[in-house]
Write a protein that binds this DNA or RNA. Structure first.
Lengths: 211, 211
DNA sequence: CTAGTATCCGTGCGATCGCTCAGTTTTCAT
DNA sequence: ATGAAAACTGAGCGATCGCACGGATACTAG
């Protein structure tokens, strides 16, 4: 999986310096937590660097010790949340039947969204795109690979269709976008089992041979 | 269809005053055009009121004559774009067969997105939600009604399913979200007929009885 | 213990932001 | 032609923003 890591090229949108001692690790996570809380509670517009630092219980100087700019904070936040989602998706025994696989993929996405709909909605929909574009590209790549691997593993049970790459991308985007939209505009519905069922059925009927 | 109109309750997010002469109508549209262009070219973060006014060839004072605040500009912009999309969706003879109907709904959404993917992506994903929440609620209501009417008209050909209201909402969100996501992350794909075909097939197979 | 490095601090600068207001110009009804 | 209403103007205010910087403090390796 993609991971810039400590040797990754430095960018306007990633960490300027990697914390080495435990207290600085704590500082960085405090900053990210504060950013997430402010973003959740009152939106990107109110999330100034000074306010984030204050809320994190850290001086503004420390913040700029580790982040090259405001946008990098949200880029890093996005990256860490994506890592959790990816881990959850992958924590699964291989070689299951396709129906269980589809249920797992859809369920995993919805579970992730349910954990903090407001935060993810805000990350997707208020943070300037350039701030998280790099991270997003990496994420999409990883999820695409997983999606493609899943389809290849069950190719014989799929309806004849266009290229698998297109299908993998379409599947990923449709599931992801629908989950996002419900998180954004109808967070209550996320807990409705009908929603999960509908998404699973839609994907199943589109992908799989009848019977 | 919902329309606050000249007598609508004034709000932080709608017009403060309605233009009566032709030049002021032109002023308002110039402001909205400028806002759209700046949003498209360089994002919400750079779309300051001063810059919008300057780009519109209008003084900052005139801007605040008609808009109670920055966010109202984008709320109004969203409303006008939605009206066009709604008109396009509705400009259709009634009583078609469900397959043509699905193709029209999906096609209409994609056509809209194709017209200016960057603008619509930015509107959906960078403008603070509160700025367009009211407008969005009205839009969703109108499209929901259209979606529900469509399903009711062809109820006999639908697979047995949950309540139609849930189905209408799900259909609308799935189609809309998928189109948005492609506009946001893969605008090139919007012109690929495979995408339209995939969306149509997915919806058809989910909604309709086999055969 | 000490030298060197990592971390933290917070004042405050320059820029920009959203927006007001007092005044001028244009249009319209009569 | 004239008065009122509508529209337009732009200097500039107070607040806030992102962020640099110079120096204090905590930690670690030797």
């Amino acid at each position: 999986m993609n991971n810039a890591g400590p040797t990754g090229a430095n960018s306007r949108y990633s960490l300027r310096k990697h914390p080495k001692q435990q207290r600085s690790v704590a500082t960085v996570t405090a900053i990210l937590d504060a950013a997430a809380r402010i973003l959740t509670e009152s939106g990107y517009a109110t999330a100034s660097t000074n306010r984030i630092a204050e809320r994190a219980g850290v001086s503004i100087g420390s913040l700029y010790e580790y982040f090259p700019g405001k946008e990098a904070i949200f880029g890093e936040l996005r990256r860490r949340e994506a890592l959790k989602a990816y881990a959850e998706l992958m924590a699964r025994p291989r070689l299951e039947n396709p129906r269980d696989g589809i249920r797992h993929i859809v369920g995993s996405r919805l579970r992730w969204m349910r954990r903090n709909p407001t935060l993810y909605a805000a990350l997707e929909s208020e943070v300037p795109r350039q701030a998280i574009a790099e991270v997003e590209a990496d994420i999409v790549e990883d999820f695409m690979a997983a999606s493609l691997a899943f389809l290849e593993a069950h190719q014989d049970l799929l309806r004849p269709s266009v290229e698998l790459r297109f299908l993998a991308e379409f599947l990923m985007h449709a599931v992801s976008a629908t989950a996002n939209t419900y998180g954004l505009r109808r967070p209550e519905r996320l807990d409705d089992p009908q929603l999960e069922q509908a998404m699973v059925e839609m994907v199943e009927r589109y992908l799989l041979k009848d019977g």
